[in-house]
Computed example of a mutant assay.
Amino acid sequence: MTPELVVLALAGLLQGLQFAAYSITAQQQVGTRYAASPRDEPRQLTGRAGRYQRALNNHFEGLILFTLAVVVVVLGDGSSGLTATCAWIYLAARIAYVPAYVLGWAPWRSLIWAFGFAATMLMLIAALL
Rank of each mutant, 00 (worst) to 15 (best):
L63I: 08
A118L: 14
L56Y: 11
A20Y: 14
D40R: 15
L129S: 08
A96E: 05
Q18W: 11
A35L: 09
G116Y: 05
V6I: 14
A69P: 03
L65P: 00
A114K: 06
A87H: 00
A96D: 02
G76W: 06
M123L: 03
L65Q: 07
V72E: 07
H59A: 11
F117V: 12
Q27T: 15
L82D: 03
Y52V: 10
E61T: 08
A55I: 02
F115C: 15
G62W: 04
L103F: 15
A35P: 11
A11Q: 01
A21T: 09
I89M: 08
L124C: 06
L17D: 10
S37L: 08
A96F: 03
P3H: 12
I24W: 14
G16A: 13
S23C: 08
Q53Y: 12
A11K: 03
W113R: 00
Q29F: 08
W108R: 13
D77W: 11
L45G: 05
W88Y: 13
M1K: 10
A119S: 10
L75A: 14
E61K: 01
E41H: 13
I89D: 01
T83G: 05
G62Y: 01
W105I: 10
F117H: 02
A9D: 04
R48M: 10
I95R: 08
T83N: 09
G104A: 07
I112W: 00
Y101N: 06
L17C: 11
L13I: 15
Y90L: 00
A84N: 11
W113K: 11
L68R: 02
Y52Q: 00
A92D: 00
R54T: 12
C86V: 04
A84P: 06
V71L: 09
L75Q: 15
I95F: 02
I95T: 03
L17V: 14
T2A: 10
S23G: 15
G81D: 05
A119D: 05
W108H: 14
L13V: 15
V72R: 07
A100C: 01
F19H: 09
Y52P: 07
W105C: 07
G81C: 05
G62C: 05
